[in-house]
């Protein structure tokens, strides 16, 4: 008997056809930012390894992070981290069993975007003022 479960069935082309609901955007963002942070952990480990290796290696690290590209990486990384953090807080709310109504999920999604942008700008304003 042929295995019926292995037949190729059509997939719904949802990401190409429909206007993206904001909850879909933040759901996908949570995963993408997670992958970004995973790869981006190399920057943190690279920096701390350089600091352990000594002044010469640390000089290379400060040269990289002090360059325009380095600043861009740090600024982008801050937002990615904040967006993932906001996503985590949404998931904690859902884990209590609350916040599943459609208007609430949409408000939470927008709040997570506003929160991540706001916190990123706040942190960088503080850093730039302190310099």
């Amino acid at each position: 008997m042929k295995d019926l479960t292995e037949r190729q069935r059509p997939l719904s082309p949802f990401t190409q056809i429909y206007r993206w609901p904001i909850t879909m955007v933040t759901s996908i963002l949570h995963r993408i930012t997670g992958i970004g942070l995973y790869i981006g952990s190399l920057f943190f480990i690279g920096w701390i390894v350089a600091l352990a290796l000594g002044p010469e290696a640390y000089g290379w690290a400060t040269w990289f992070f002090g360059s325009p590209f380095g600043w861009l990486v740090l600024f982008g990384y801050t937002w990615v981290l904040m967006q993932h953090l906001m996503g985590a807080i949404r998931h904690f709310i859902w884990d209590t069993g609350a916040g599943y109504d459609k208007p609430v999920t949409q408000k939470l999604a927008w709040a997570s975007l506003a929160g991540s942008v706001g916190l990123t700008l706040l942190l960088w304003i503080v850093i730039l003022l302190a310099l």
């Binding site: 943190f44 480990i45 701390i48 390894v49 600091l51 352990a52």
Partner: peptide, 9 residues
């Protein structure tokens, strides 16, 4: 790598 580096420092 991370923990070893922090311990060395």
């Amino acid at each position: 790598l991370g923990i070893l580096s922090i311990l060395i420092i």
